[in-house]
């Protein structure tokens, strides 16, 4: 009888211990789920907000800057991008240098150098509408001699209004060739913007 009692009480103690263990385990789990400080969103340089075109009129010190600017990126609550009208003088030659920025980074990040470093996998296209009387040529070359297009020469004709589309293509698997079209399936789009132009 005595041993039976002992056995029963042992069992009870075991059961209690067992339940205690469960509660201990659950409370530890619960504590872990406490609120943490949240971090600022960071897309490490993958975001491009701004494309700047720096114009220098050949033979002068006259310079102009036009840009596509979307400093807060896209998405709910963000301000739509501002796209400048590119105004140039007729019958002039401009040396143009392009700059890419990420304004969501603090400080503002200049991404141009990065594209230049990986010039074998990138290529800019300048596609002016013929009515705009702007011609773009003399694109700079990547290290391997293939077109890159960070620098270019713009030549204006008579007064006209038009558009120019500027595209940055990225070759994830390499294979860039001089005669690749802007929509080559070998490459994907990083930038595709259209500016209105005015030669006046």
């Amino acid at each position: 009888m005595r041993s039976l009692l002992n056995k029963n009480s042992k069992k009870l103690i075991m059961k209690r211990n067992f339940l205690l263990m469960l509660f201990a385990a659950s409370s530890i789990l619960l504590l872990n789920s406490c609120d943490k400080e949240i971090a600022e969103e960071d897309n490490d340089g993958e975001v491009l907000t701004t494309l700047e075109l720096h114009f220098t009129e050949r033979g002068t010190q006259n310079s102009l800057i036009y840009k596509f600017d979307d400093p807060d990126g896209f998405g709910t609550g963000s301000v739509p991008p501002v796209i400048d009208l590119i105004r140039l003088l007729p019958n002039k030659v401009y040396d143009v240098e392009l700059r890419l920025l990420n304004k969501t980074a603090n400080p503002i990040e200049d991404v141009t150098a990065e594209v230049e470093e990986e010039s074998a996998d990138h290529r800019f296209y300048y596609l002016p509408a013929t009515a705009g009387n702007i011609m773009v040529d003399n694109l700079d070359k990547a290290a391997d001699g293939l077109p890159l297009g960070i620098k270019s020469t713009w030549t204006t004709g008579a007064k006209a209004a038009g558009t120019i589309r500027i595209v940055l293509r990225h070759y994830p698997n390499g294979g860039k060739a001089t005669d690749d079209l802007v929509d080559s399936p070998k490459s994907g789009t990083d930038i595709d913007t259209e500016f209105a132009t005015a030669v006046d």
Partner: peptide, 13 residues
């Protein structure tokens, strides 16, 4: 991991 512009980026997007 998306296709990224920069080959040196090793982080997930």
């Amino acid at each position: 991991y998306d296709i990224v512009r920069s080959n040196s980026n090793t982080k997930p997007q």
